[in-house]
Amino acid sequence: MSLKNLIKNAIADYKRFRKDQRKYSNDNIRYYNFWALPNSDASWFTQFIKHRNINPNGKKITFLSVVGNPKISNFIRSPKIFFTGENIENQEHPSFIFKKYHLKNHDLSLGFSYLDDKKYLRFPLWILYIIPSNASFEDIKSLIDSYNDPKHRHNNNRENFCANISRADNNGIRKTIIDLLVPIETVKCAGSFLKNTNDLQEKFGDNKIEYLKTFRFNICPENSNTKGYVTEKLFEAIIAGSIPIYWGSHNRPDPKIINQDAVLFFDPENPQLLFDKVNLLWKDKNAYEEFCRLKPFTDHAAEVIWEWLNILEEKVKSVI
């Protein structure tokens, strides 16, 4: 391509950037290509940096994500930090186009993958959903202990069988699991996908956690199966005290954090295993109560999460 065309394309990209940008500012911390700001995941980073006094001199920091054009980063000065809430390893997902940019165009990259690069930190999306940005180690330990308490999972309000809350089913896994379990009892679908109830909206004001607290099981698979790709879905089930029915991350989601024995995994090669387990836990009170005594988090989960936060602090300081 000629220099003239390169310049022409760069100018066109910049014009699109100025027109379509999703920019939100909070003091000296800016966000591009993020979603649903300012009261969303992005504000977590702002509060984290403020709480830990990571940026005492007020240097401008830019966070970029995957809702938009990856070339936006070409027009932004450092320090630039990339964060993805989507699986950029999935070739079928629109965010895949960010894969070749996130390490090259940014000073620090945060995501799901297990990459060995000094500019990268594995920092999965679910942390932003369950860990407050200003949490101390004691706070994190207290949260984990509360979710590990058998009483959190086993209570008398769980009169409903199984819930699925989703907008779509791109790979067909959700429908497969739902069809598998329907012979046991009706699966309540409260999202736009296969919707058969309005209770989430009408009775619970769209509060997903409170809604799930009335169910024993929650179908919460990922949209794609990639090692390390673990989103908030599994953790929302745990926070609500529902038993997660999960598929994703090669059915080994964050093994240093999640007690794999406390999750029901769907194996497409042997769906009968899941059917038999769910059927048993639904119909056998003793089996259900015994399962509820399993801790969903490992004994060292709080320590692992705390280390993650400390490494994030050091990484952000290094790019500033």
Rank of each mutant, 00 (worst) to 15 (best):
D149H: 10
K99N: 11
D149K: 11
K208C: 02
I88P: 00
L280C: 14
Y288C: 06
I245Q: 05
P124F: 00
K195R: 14
S318I: 07
W44S: 02
P183N: 03
N164A: 12
S192C: 04
E185H: 10
N55Q: 10
D116M: 12
I140K: 05
S40D: 12
W306G: 00
V67L: 14
V187Y: 00
N28D: 12
F235I: 04
H102P: 08
A42H: 05
K50S: 13
D284S: 04
R167P: 09
A163G: 03
A168N: 15
G228W: 01
E236Y: 06
F265P: 07
Q201G: 08
I11Q: 06
N225S: 03
F204T: 10
Y31S: 03
D206G: 08
F275D: 09
D284E: 12
F193I: 06
S113K: 13
P70L: 01
F137G: 05
H106A: 10
F83T: 00
S142K: 15
D27H: 14
I177C: 02
T62W: 01
I127K: 09
L200P: 00
F123G: 00
K151R: 15
I29R: 00
I131Q: 01
K283Y: 12
N218H: 14
Y31C: 03
C220F: 03
I305C: 02
L309F: 06
N198R: 11
E138P: 08
